[in-house]
């Protein structure tokens, strides 16, 4: 049912290119507006050059129930600095002027979008150059809300699969999913634990047996060698909390960003990208 023209599909093009290169991808997550809108724009703009293949941009929310302390804190920093959903979309529009190729996925919670208005949000997001959405609190049971309208508007709808997704549930999760499948490698919230390679490999095969979509693996990946390990069994590794923690480490005592906060984030992305590039896909 996808309305996306394959030729203009940045996400599919990117995964196809990765396949051609014979390597896995790096999905870099940062929160839009963290630590403030200006520094955040610098951080996001530099991600592709540092080696991020796909950008996952968090839409800050006051009550991010599925996220751990790191990402929750980053959301609050952004909100306190005046970030809004409208400004997040502007950030993407601004980024897209200089970078027509790097896919951007917006990740967040439904309420700010609901408040913005679903139709207005989808129109603005598509126009700004957003490629897909991950909305944490919209499971398949609520697909009428945003998933189906988003697909019809030409956006990918990326869903999370978990270790507790049994065969029946996985079927449901994969229905209406597009772009890629985001496998949550450990139970719990973002940024706290990591999973063993073997269990990830088994889970990825389970998903691949039921879907042709690429599989990205996230939750708990912080170091280059972990990213390398993950892409040896999956199509991409998602790194979030480690980058967000780097933003936090780049703040002075008053919570203001030091000059090199963007550089520090980009340095970590570069290390992770090196890890990903040295991994072999099986």
């Amino acid at each position: 049912m996808s309305e996306i023209d394959p030729k203009n599909d940045r996400l599919n093009r990117r995964f196809a290119a990765l396949k051609a290169e014979g390597r896995g991808g790096l999905v870099a997550f940062v929160t839009a507006g963290d630590p403030n809108p200006e520094a955040s724009a610098r951080i996001v703009k530099g991600l592709p050059a540092a080696g991020a293949d796909i950008i996952e941009l968090g839409m800050p929310f006051s009550d991010p129930m599925a996220d751990g302390p790191s990402i929750q804190a980053s959301s609050l920093r952004a909100l306190n600095a005046g970030m809004t959903l409208r400004k997040t979309i502007e950030l993407v529009r601004d980024f897209r002027r200089d970078d027509p190729d790097t896919p951007i996925i917006l990740m967040g919670y439904y309420n700010p979008i609901y408040r913005y208005g679903v139709d207005a949000f989808l129109a603005d997001a598509v126009e700004a150059g957003v490629d897909g959405l991950i909305i944490v609190d919209l499971p398949p049971e609520e697909d009428d809300e945003l998933c189906l309208p988003a697909r019809a508007a030409g956006l990918h709808w990326i869903r999370l699969a978990t270790p507790t997704s049994d065969a029946e549930r996985l079927e449901k999760v994969l229905t209406n999913t597009s772009g890629f499948v985001y496998y949550v490698s450990v139970m719990g919230i973002t940024g706290t634990k990591s999973a063993a390679r073997d269990s990830i490999a088994a889970a990825v095969s389970r998903i691949k047996a039921r879907s042709d979509l690429p599989v990205a693996v996230g939750f708990g990946i912080r170091r280059p060698e972990q990213a390398q390990e993950v892409v040896s069994v999956a199509d991409a590794a998602v790194v979030g909390s480690a980058l967000v923690d780097t933003v936090k480490a780049g703040l002075d005592e008053a919570g203001q960003p030091q000059d090199d906060v963007a550089a520090a984030v980009h340095a970590l992305v570069r290390d992770l990208a090196t890890g990903v590039r040295s991994g072999q896909t099986e």
Binding site: Y110, T162, V184
Partner: peptide
Amino acid sequence: GGRYVAETLMP
């Protein structure tokens, strides 16, 4: 009403 929760909670 409804069930607006993360996939991790759905099961």
